[in-house]
């Protein structure tokens, strides 16, 4: 067996592709030798990444290694300067990619529920949009704050509204750029659990950029480490859910990733 087929086999075995509606067993997206240059500065250089639909992927790397750049390519905010990015079949009634930023980026002049409705732009309007927005607000535990201004919410609550906005359109792919980075440790763990719960229920493909190795192994099916513009480590996390934080298994994987980052 070649190395490439080994990788493919491993990722297939270790992360049994969960049933995703009609895209069962399909690919969510794939980078092929994708590179990104800004001027003469090469940020990404030959990224090969094949992600099956429904996978929870975590991306780790030192600051400035190009994680946000990778997500921006995925969300269509930028184009690769070399190589390609392809997507699986687009499903009816789903937005393809949603992006959750490090900051909540809520519109201060729109109520909480109106902010969530932004996530339905071009998908639903009027009372249907209101209905769906209220439903998802209930799922993130903010149904009773629907009519308030974002400025009165706490940081964690704002980020939950942003999560609701990202999810209300039932995206096939959810890209998250350190969405929990600015939260305190307890709120962070709460948000991680919320994210995992909704991911299990909605079966989208999640791509989470994070600085927090413990967060990555606690949430993800698979962790990739980016270094010098390439994928330096591609590691499966074959641990049953619900996972117990601080378990020996997770700690061992965490150690492996840290070794690769600082070794």
């Amino acid at each position: 067996m070649t190395a490439a087929s080994l990788t493919a086999a491993r990722s297939f075995v270790a992360t049994p592709v969960r049933p995703i509606g009609s895209v069962e067993g399909q690919r969510a997206f794939a980078f092929r030798h994708a590179g990104k240059r800004f001027g003469d500065k090469t940020v990404l250089d030959g990224i090969d990444l094949d992600v099956p639909a429904g996978q929870f992927l975590a991306v780790i790397g030192k600051s400035g290694c190009g994680k946000s750049t990778l997500l921006r390519l995925l969300a269509g905010l930028d184009r690769p300067t070399s190589g390609s990015l392809s997507f699986g079949v687009e499903e009816e009634g789903h937005s393809r990619t949603r992006f959750m930023f490090q900051e909540p980026r809520l519109l201060p002049w729109a109520s909480v529920v109106e902010n969530v409705e932004v996530g339905l732009t071009g998908i639903a309007t009027g009372s249907e949009a209101r209905h769906r927005a209220l439903d998802i607000l209930g799922e993130v535990g903010l149904a009773d704050r629907a009519d308030e201004w974002p400025s009165v919410l706490s940081g964690g609550q704002k980020q939950r509204v942003a999560l609701a906005r990202a999810l209300v359109g039932h995206p096939q792919i959810l890209a998250l750029d350190e969405p929990l980075g600015a939260l305190d440790a307890l709120t962070r763990i709460e948000m991680q659990q919320l994210l995992e719960r909704i991911w299990i229920a909605q079966k989208f493909t999640a791509v989470l950029v994070t600085h927090d190795v413990a967060e990555a192994v606690a949430l993800a099916d698979r962790v990739v480490v980016i270094s010098e513009g390439r994928i330096a480590l591609d590691l499966d996390v074959p641990v049953e859910r619900p996972r117990r934080r601080g378990s020996v298994e997770l700690a061992r994987l965490e150690g492996k990733i840290l070794d690769r980052l600082f070794g």
Partner: peptide, 20 residues
């Protein structure tokens, strides 16, 4: 950042102007 958010969420120019 809000303008970028609006774009990512698929607002057209008109919506971007009136809502953001």
């Amino acid at each position: 950042q809000l303008v970028e958010m609006g774009r990512v969420y698929g607002m057209d120019r008109r919506a971007l102007f009136f809502r953001v």
